[in-house]
Amino acid sequence: MKTAEGLKDIIKPENLVYRKSSLITDKPFSYCPGCGHGTTHRIIAEVIEEENLAENTIGVCPVGCSVLMYDFLDLDIQQAAHGRAPAVATAIKRLMPEKFVFTYQGDGDLAAIGTSETIHACNRGENILIVFINNGIYGMTGGQMAPTTLEGMKSSTSPYGRDVKMMGNPLKMTELVAMLPGTCYVTRQSVHTPAAVRKAKKAIKKAVGYQKKGMGTCFIEIVSNCPSGWKMTPVESNKWMEENMFAYYKPGDLKVPAESDADAENKNEQ
């Protein structure tokens, strides 16, 4: 058993290269296997841990799959009424400007029920971070059609596919808020491959920096999968997402702060 002994030598604290953040509690995530929510929770926890903000962070969770976030992350988290997280986060940030405040919302929450709260918070330029998980479906309630559901995409309330003549076009929230003067950093990321996860983590890290400087609303959309709602295996759903979701929701930065600030940020990173 030469290999086994060799492996025991490797498993030592000094050789540790990756372990989940200590801000994640021992409670197993309630998400379905392969869901992007878990990955996003993990990277948010990692950024907050690396930036040493655990004691100075307040998260706002709305209604949706992510409602139980307070159970999974060892942070101060406030639950808001459906869609109203940006409004609650506005109040928290204005009363406690020294705290890092973020909201974590799904597409049913942010793009349907809370559209006005989101747009107005972004338009006012509230100094908060909005993390928007877009999986094109109402995942928690059983895969109903959401405003972000793609054209022709089947859901439990559009069994023949979304007909844009009758049900309207998929809503690009991120493009919408990028037009508002209050936002400083608007980007669309995903968490389906290691490279994408690292990029998304970098985006969250940038947003933390911008919030510290008080530059305005940061809006990060994370295009995610919903294996249960889409009725696919996690691997299939990621592939479907790459082929279909990315064609309509193109990943990349939509708005970055003025060049001088962005350059300073890049230099810090290097």
């Binding site: 998400y31 869901c35 929510h37 990955t39 993990r42 290691p194």
Partner: peptide, 20 residues
């Protein structure tokens, strides 16, 4: 090879990686 790819994509954070 301890590349941490698996741990990076794991939605449940169940993988710990060591490398030497």
């Amino acid at each position: 090879i301890g590349c941490t790819n698996c741990a990076t994509v794991c939605p449940d954070g169940v993988i710990t990686v060591y490398r030497m």
